[in-house]
Design a protein around this nucleic acid. Structure first.
Lengths: 232, 232
DNA sequence: TTAACCAGATTCCTATACGATTTCGCTGAG
DNA sequence: CTCAGCGAAATCGTATAGGAATCTGGTTAA
């Protein structure tokens, strides 16, 4: 069945999904030939995709020994990731809480309502929850009006990494509640409240994920002296 | 002269340098075959490198029409880039200003002294200045202790992008003075001052680059109400 | 003059081939 | 039983080949 076109795009999606889904275990070696045959393409596009995935921090390259999937995040890496989110996302929520057409509240509302419907029907929530979370946060980043920040955030692939840590039983209701708080503050064009709600959401989110490391956990330290606002 | 090994690494460096140096003009199409022949390799490693460069935002891909180098930054993009730097780097400078072995002041001092020597001997300063600037800022990012933030910053390739905007005559002395202020605050373990000095440096840096867009320039707005400090 | 169209050539994109390096399993000595 | 050494198999990394799409220049019709 010859696919006339667009191999590398498909291969990228497929490998990304394989890593996310766990078909390629964290830290496992990647056999290029095996992947190529299983996807019905040659090794060339697979190699190109691996280069890109390495840039995405989803695979690591050992010269002469090929590629492996990146190991699961350990606790320090998880903290680093959420520290970065605390730098970027509250700022974005603040920036998005403006009385303009760029205000993302309508889109966020649609996203939340759609996900509420999914919650009632779906069995395995993980996939849907991550998809919703990804869209929700990206919508706010996009509305911040700063494509560099948005891209930098997207490049962390934080949802993909954290998805691998998810326990099987996820409570989507908590996430929806916190998202709703963020959405309402943005809708009300209240920058302070939007920033605060996003901060709370990310802190809570970190705590939930950190439960995976039960015992060795030290919470993110609370705010120290206030920091001057830098931009806009 | 056949290199037995490590082609993609060399090709990556070479193409990166070509874009930086301007041998590949901004926005120009990239002829894969021509690049391959000029570097004495086949098209395969060149293709892999292009995938990575696209992830780095240094080339763009049009399906069916090949790759082009990314156009020069326009003013809004430059503003976005420096807004991102204002989010990340003052935070990193603050985090690095701690009384620990991780304090990067000694390394920064060496870097500054080495560059002062270069300034006296070198003719074309641009290349050296960008190299120094890259190392200086990365050293601070590394000392922040957050590899995610460091990587996100590195992925913006801000020095590479801004280098393409540099005028031929650069005054390294101003940069050195501002860097020295940052270094001294970090050495003194004064987080407030380190954050402030870095903020000043980035603002001034933006103003210098923005001169390239003379006339259409609106300065980065000054700080509004203070913003609560989020982490550490 | 302008716009549309159509061959020729170029370029992209995937597939296949092949040497170089690494990994694995076996043998045999300590 | 453990471990060093060696040969075969597997895998990586680059080169080459060929089909498919796109670009170029020239011609014709409105």
């Amino acid at each position: 069945m010859p696919r006339g076109k667009a191999a590398v795009s498909d291969v990228y999606s497929a490998m990304r999904a394989s890593i996310l889904e766990g078909d390629l275990a964290p830290g496992a070696r990647i056999n290029i030939d095996a992947v190529a045959r299983s996807l019905g393409v040659s090794q060339t596009p697979v190699r190109e995709v691996l280069q890109r995935l390495e840039g995405d921090n989803l695979v690591v390259y050992n010269p002469g020994r090929g590629y492996s999937t990146t190991p699961l995040l350990d606790l320090p890496e998880l903290r680093s990731l959420f520290e970065f989110r605390l730098l970027v996302e509250p700022w974005a929520a603040r920036a998005a809480a403006v009385d303009r057409l760029a205000n993302p509240a309508p889109a966020l509302k649609k996203e939340l309502e759609a996900f509420r419907d999914v919650m009632e029907s779906s069995g395995d929530l993980r996939q849907d929850l991550v998809a919703h979370d990804t869209r929700f946060h990206d919508t706010i980043l996009a509305a911040s009006g700063n494509p560099v920040v948005r891209h930098a955030f997207a490049q962390t692939h934080c949802h993909l990494h954290t998805f691998r840590l998810y326990p099987a039983d996820v409570d989507g209701a908590i996430t929806v509640a916190e998202h709703t708080a963020v959405r309402e503050a943005i809708e009300a064009c209240d920058p302070e409240q939007a920033e605060a709600a996003m901060t709370t959401h990310i802190r809570n989110s970190f705590d939930r994920f950190a439960k995976a490391f039960e015992g060795e956990l030290a919470p993110l330290e609370d705010s120290g002296p206030p920091r001057k606002r830098i931009i806009t």
